[in-house]
Computed example of a mutant assay.
Amino acid sequence: MAHHNLSGVFCAMCPQELIDLILGKIILADKETLKSCALVARSFRPTSQKMIFSDLTILPPGRDNIPALQRLTDVLSGSSHLALYVRTLHLIQPGFYKPCVWMQSDILPAILPVLTNLKSLNVRIYNWNYFHSNCEQAIYTLIARSSLASIELKDACLQTNARLLSFLRCLPASLQSASFLDVFAGHMSYRNDPKSELHKLRLVSLHLDSYAPALFQWAIRVVDPTCLRHLHTMIKENTINVVQQLLDGAVYVETYHLFFGSIFSHPENLDLQKMQGLRTLEISVRLNWEEIEEVAGQGQHNPLNDAMRTLETAPHSVEHLVLNLNICNPDDLSHFMGFASFEHLGDRPALQDVVVRIVSDYDYSALQHGIRYLEAVFHRLHERGVLMAIAVRPPSQEED
């Protein structure tokens, strides 16, 4: 009883701003602590509830059941103000190859309309064929909300381009950031339909790490490249032309991450010369000589050729360069020899640092050997003190 009185005295004397500041130090993922704080005193409750419901997941792995979904519905309907606190929503299919409860339930269409202040939506649904029709339509309606500023579509297999385009048509003009990771769709080309595209998107950030060519073609026609400041694209043999069109217009992009998603031989490389606003360039390449095919009449193709030819076209405004190398054998680093790009890097006065990240299954001593080899290859940068080589081991091995 005495403890309760002391707590009441503290809350009465402590400014609400200080209480909010203290609660703000709690990480959003620590829901249990936030729930406890909400019960401390009336002054703790509003801020604790805002933080609890600001980031909502439907439904977390292990809780994919009708009772959990129904409880969420009851909470949001009984205390309607809680729905207004939801700023970020995650829609997750826990298992790739089996439907989850919320995808085939008519409960979700009753939840989504009340999330009127949603800012960010993350959708991780592999098989869209498992959807209840009303559930899928409720998601499209949610995407079209004018409050939405950021969207991420990840690990999605939409089977047909028509389904992908249904998703894309809903994106609101207010959107600032769009991310598409490991998205699969049909192989048909995208067709520009003026009846279904009423506005262009003035995105600040665009992430296209996808296997759907139609997605890249959509970006060319819908996204205003002059508004982009952050860009990430995968490059494949069937997307190199549309990616180049996007880069030609992305003159104000400050950060560009280029990922070479497959080994291919192409007569032309990407050209970055028009990206005069570029300050940070990140290039990712996967090296595995056992999987590299021989190009007819040309012998074994070196995947670094495409990356390094592109690097040579980078504007001299680049201040930070990052090379991500996923290697199966540190000896593969010997293929760095002979690239003129590395020598030219030493002639770039704006360049402040070069970071080389190595991801490998090999032991740490082998990676250290690879780092020493890289320092020899980048000797001019090493002398200037701008080279930083980092060995990164896969998370699974770090845990072991």
Rank of each mutant, 00 (worst) to 15 (best):
L321T: 05
S205K: 15
E312K: 14
Y362G: 00
Q137E: 15
L23G: 05
F96M: 13
T239P: 14
A162P: 00
R221A: 13
P213S: 12
Q159I: 15
I143K: 00
T73F: 04
E268D: 09
N122V: 12
N129A: 08
K35R: 15
E17I: 13
F336C: 12
R145F: 10
H90P: 03
M1A: 08
A307Y: 01
K35V: 02
P349V: 07
P67V: 02
L278N: 06
L198V: 09
E319W: 03
L72S: 06
I292D: 14
V40W: 08
N329C: 11
F264Y: 14
K25N: 12
A138W: 00
V114P: 01
G186I: 03
S177A: 07
I235E: 05
C157Q: 14
P172V: 07
M308L: 15
A340L: 14
S150P: 01
E268C: 10
M103K: 01
C135W: 09
L175E: 13
I263M: 07
I240G: 02
V114F: 01
A110M: 11
Q159D: 15
N238S: 13
A250M: 08
Q276M: 11
L115P: 00
P94N: 10
V359E: 04
T233K: 08
S79G: 00
L311R: 03
V251N: 03
S43T: 10
L21K: 13
S196M: 04
F167P: 00
L198Y: 01
C100S: 15
D30W: 01
Q49V: 06
L321I: 09
S174A: 11
F260P: 09
N65C: 15
I125K: 02
D224S: 13
D400M: 10
V123R: 00
Q49G: 04
A156S: 15
N65R: 12
I292T: 14
L89P: 11
L158D: 13
W102N: 04
